[in-house]
């Protein structure tokens, strides 16, 4: 999770080796994302944030083509996904609405039942009913043992799909924690504006608080247990 420009999409594009890292390493399923990128992609399903598909082909033609490039696509499962998302695979993609194009994009990411799903703001353009179908499908993938890596700026959505949430800011992971479905993450983070920046050290020393970030007069903290004396910022 992160604000616009925080680096969510850049992180995903790095993991898929679309852009090259200037330093550091990362691995997916124990394989280096740069050296073993082909091996990594055998296990990955990817949905980009700004879905781009070939407009002059039908969904079915596209699925057939991509199935040849990626093994493991089962016709039955593909048909099930098409039916579940009520997609229109016989129409030219260029004639579909944004939501229906998004469904085609989701199906191509899921159709080979990958071990790792990398999804960049996946529910963008989907109506609420389809979002529910999508969450259910993701839960299924997760139950099957797939790792689901999702970027979002919708906290409620993250809580519905994720076991852990990481917060990214200016390209750095500033916080990571497990998510409990009954926990309201939004209510536990506080932005505190201090009269004196040096008071930040007092907050940092407070064992009841998890210190998240500090910039100038502003400190972001999280109570380790909900506190009635603090109100959400």
């Amino acid at each position: 999770m992160g604000a616009n420009g925080a680096g969510k999409t850049t992180t995903i594009r790095l993991l898929l080796n679309f852009i090259q890292p200037s330093s550091g390493t990362a691995s997916i399923m124990g394989k280096d994302i740069v050296k073993d990128t082909v091996e990594v992609k055998k296990h990955v399903g990817y949905l980009s944030g700004e879905i781009a598909l070939w407009p002059k082909v039908t969904g079915n033609e596209m699925f057939a083509y991509l199935s040849k490039l990626q093994s493991g696509v089962k016709k039955d499962y593909l048909a099930e996904l098409i039916s579940r998302f009520e997609a229109e695979p016989d129409k030219l993609i260029g004639e579909l609405s944004k939501g229906n194009r998004q469904k085609i994009g989701i199906i191509q990411a899921l159709m080979h039942q990958p071990d790792v799903l990398i999804l960049d703001e996946p529910t963008s353009g989907l109506d609420p009913l389809m979002q529910e179908v999508f969450y259910a499908t993701i839960r299924e993938a997760s139950a099957r043992g797939a790792a689901v890596f999702v970027s979002s700026h919708n906290l409620a959505e993250a809580q519905r799909m994720c076991d852990r949430v990481g917060i990214i800011k200016h390209g750095r992971l500033i916080h990571e924690q497990a998510v409990k479905s009954d926990e309201n993450l939004a209510g536990t983070t506080f932005r505190v504006v201090l009269a004196h920046p040096k008071d930040a050290e007092k907050l940092r020393a407070n064992r009841a608080l998890k210190f998240i970030s500090h910039e100038g007069h502003t400190v972001v903290v999280q109570p380790k247990r909900p506190s009635p004396r603090l109100s959400p910022s």
Binding site: L16, N17, F18, T37, V38, E39, K41, K42, V44, Y46, S48, E50, A52, L53, W54, L66, L69, Q70, Q108
Partner: peptide
């Protein structure tokens, strides 16, 4: 330019 290259590069093809 149309970003469909990503669809191909997301597959196991070098």
């Amino acid at each position: 330019q149309s970003h469909t290259l990503e669809l191909l590069l997301a597959r196991p093809i070098s």
